[in-house]
Design a protein around this nucleic acid. Structure first.
Length: 681
DNA sequence: TGTAACTCCCCTCCG
DNA sequence: GGGAGTTACA
């Protein structure tokens, strides 16, 4: 490739200043496969953004670059950054997740794999519902035999597909208690693929499988392979076998594949991701150039010492040890709390103290293992009027009322969608599965004409509700274009809101969610892209839902550790560092899972630039009514070994306790022993 | 026969 | 707090 100026005559020297030699080598690598092993905080996003900018400046048309990232947001950030670097329009770069790009390509070329361009995308809940319907139809639901529930059925299916394992293997390895159901599952899965094909539905896994299948069709492969000169993949350690094969399919006509990743940050094994992809990359792509980034620009050395020490006891060995040029810095804190309530108070006090010291709330984050781990903290923050935005955890579109409204919209979009019909009809008074089925059959016999429902007789108790439903569906589908997407949502919302009070117990906040949905719809011009985007790229946080932010808005970040991937903050507070929380007791089945939890903790720790505090509540109150009120003593997370703790300031600090509480723990408990070790210093 | 009311159990991470 | 399965009632 010929060397051009990048942005101005001094560009090369400017770049040499902006990037270290390894980063520069990666960013300006020419043709051929490139593997960038980039430890946490080593500037991989930066390197990738520079690489995009460099490619564009070399004359590669932006639309011939494909940038596959873990979230759509990550792709957007990189593209924006590349744009400001190259001063050229990089917005035509194809960017997004594997799923989103698959969706886009399949809408364009899906015909080659017998897919209509207006297929719909089913999220996890939708596909579980469909599997559940089939499960009922086959009579596996009740009575004598215990059959796995629909969410389990879906999990088994997804595991099979993503890890490309046989049903018998998956059952044996992951779901031994479902072994008896093997025959039934096989029947269900066959029917599931049939029904999806009938209704032109793709689930998340299908987006990858059909993309891969598409690349198996020679003409399609030539065409799609020929669309891109360069393919760049971020977070490659979190891709699965199918994604790796898609990549090989894309390689077809050129060798310009760049992947970036860190084997020590692989945290999506549960979803079928495999580190083998990154380890085997040089074999799969011969003549790979490997660049390793080890210098951490993010964190102060004491934070990295803790991170390195956490990984030192990993069973699996990693290639890198991170080091930092950032001098000084404080030892991370290990804060022991008597209980969760105290943990909440302490986090608040720390956060406020940092803000007093000039660190905005947005540069501070509280990280936890599971979405609900922040429930109590959220209440405490609200009580103190500390604004926050939460990432990860239960998502907006998974809420029942949001699904209801979307089901209404889906029916208008696609009257064949019998799952949505079921959902919608069964929320009417006096309508159950039987009546719903009759309605759907009637529709199918009348060429899916909504108007044919006008003279359909339903049980007397349901007559009024049914008439109202048919009316609004007809209105919206007839006036669709004129109304716009938001207008359609508005109409359906007015119809649906009165039902909220009967269906659910806290209708008011739910009604507000529906208004949010309408706000989001404002941004869309087509109903289909609105529905698809909502499933492929759902709002990531409460912030995404609010209107445009005020200029002086400042808010604390709450995030699951998974959603924190790729982010960094001045101060990071890791809460619930107790065994059973991190590692999650759902993931202590085998060593592989525990090791993934360790990497997750490592990811959390390495998000911190200057300050890190790890909180550990000594006891938890169980709210399980059948056990009565009880509390159980926790043990410090197994990842905070004595060696790790020695690298931290393990003081027990208490703030603002109205009634100082004695830690009343029997001396012989493990928690107590752990505590003594911490106090030893 | 179909729907409403009741009981029991379980609760992870994400596109 | 919600979903799945069971029982009670129209």
């Amino acid at each position: 490739m010929k060397q051009h100026d990048i942005c101005g005559p001094d560009a090369p020297s400017v770049w040499a200043k902006a990037l270290n030699p390894q980063q520069l080598k990666a960013a300006t690598h020419g043709d051929g496969p490139l593997l960038i092993i980039a430890g946490a905080g080593t500037g991989k996003t930066r390197t990738l953004a520079y690489r995009v900018a460099w490619l564009v400046s070399q004359g590669v048309p932006a639309e011939r670059i494909l940038l596959l990232t873990f979230t759509r947001r990550a792709a957007q950030q990189m593209i924006d950054r590349a744009m400001s670097l190259s001063r050229q329009d990089t917005h035509r770069v194809w960017g997004g997740t594997f799923h989103a790009v698959g969706n886009r390509l399949l809408r364009m070329y899906g015909k080659a794999v017998k897919l209509s361009p207006d297929f719909s995308v089913a999220d996890e809940g939708d596909s579980a519902d469909l599997l559940g319907m089939i499960r009922n139809d086959f009579g596996f639901a009740g009575k004598d035999k215990r059959f796995p529930r629909k969410t389990t059925v879906r999990a088994i299916y997804s595991r099979m597909v993503n890890a490309r394992e046989k049903l018998s293997t998956v059952l044996e390895k992951e779901y031994p208690w479902c072994a008896e159901a093997e025959k039934g599952l096989r029947q269900i899965f066959t029917e599931y693929t049939n029904r999806k094909a009938d209704r032109q539905i793709l689930d998340y896994d299908d987006l990858l499988i059909f993309w891969q299948a598409l690349l198996g069709v020679p003409e399609a492969r030539d065409h799609i392979g020929g669309m891109f000169d360069h393919v760049l993949v971020d977070e490659y350690q979190d891709t699965n076998i199918i994604q790796a094969e898609v990549l090989q399919g894309l390689r077809h006509q050129n060798k310009n594949i760049t992947v970036v990743g860190d084997d020590a940050q692989s945290i999506y094994m549960f979803r079928g991701a495999t580190v083998r992809n990154i380890l085997a990359f040089p074999e799969q792509f011969p003549n790979t150039t490997i660049v390793t980034l080890e210098e951490n620009y993010r964190s102060v050395q004491p934070v990295l010492d803790v991170a390195n020490q956490v990984m030192a006891s990993a069973q699996f060995k990693y290639t890198k040890n991170l080091w930092s040029n950032r001098k000084g810095g404080r030892k991370p804190l290990l804060v022991t709390c008597v209980d969760e309530a105290e943990q909440c108070r302490m986090v608040c006090e720390h956060v406020l103290a940092r803000r007093e010291a000039g660190v905005p709330l947005q540069d501070q984050a509280v990280l936890f293992r599971a979405g609900h781990h922040s429930d109590m903290l959220e209440i405490e923050l609200a009580r103190r009027n500390i604004p926050f935005h939460k990432y990860g955890g239960l998502r907006f579109i998974e809420a029942a009322h949001v699904k209801d409204l979307l089901a209404l919209l889906r029916i208008v979009e696609n009257p064949r969608d019998d799952m949505s019909w079921h959902r919608v009809l069964e929320m009417l008074d006096g309508v159950g599965p039987k009546t719903a089925r009759r309605v759907i059959e009637h529709l199918n016999e009348h060429q899916l004409q909504l108007a044919s429902l006008d003279d359909f007789t339903v049980p007397a108790s349901a007559r009024e509700g049914f008439a109202g439903l048919v009316e609004v569906l007809l209105t919206v589908s007839r006036a669709g274009r004129k109304l716009g997407v938001a207008g359609q949502v508005e109409q359906l919302r007015h119809y649906y809101e009165p039902l909220l009070a009967r269906l659910y117990d806290n209708p008011l906040p739910r009604a507000r969610d529906l208004e949010q949905l309408e706000n989001i719809a404002e941004r869309y011009r087509s109903r289909q892209s609105f529905i698809t985007d909502l499933t492929l790229d759902p709002p990531q946080s409460t912030a995404d839902l609010a209107g445009p932010p005020h200029k002086d808005d400042d808010f604390l970040i709450l995030s699951t550790m998974h959603s924190a991937k790729g982010c960094e903050w001045e101060s990071v507070y890791v809460i619930h560092a107790a065994d059973g929380m991190i590692p999650s007791d759902m993931a202590t089945g085998d060593d592989e899972q525990v090791e993934e939890e360790r990497r997750l903790f490592y990811v959390a720790v390495t998000r911190a630039r200057d300050r890190l505090a790890v909180f550990f509540p000594l006891r938890y109150y169980t709210r399980k009514h059948w056990m009565g009120d009880a509390h159980i003593y926790a043990q410090l997370s197994r990842f905070v070994t004595p060696e790790v703790a020695r690298l931290m300031d393990g003081r027990v600090v208490r703030y603002g306790m109205e009634d100082p509480v004695e830690i009343d723990i029997e001396p012989e408990t493990d928690a107590r022993a752990q505590l003594d070790e911490l106090w030893e210093e």
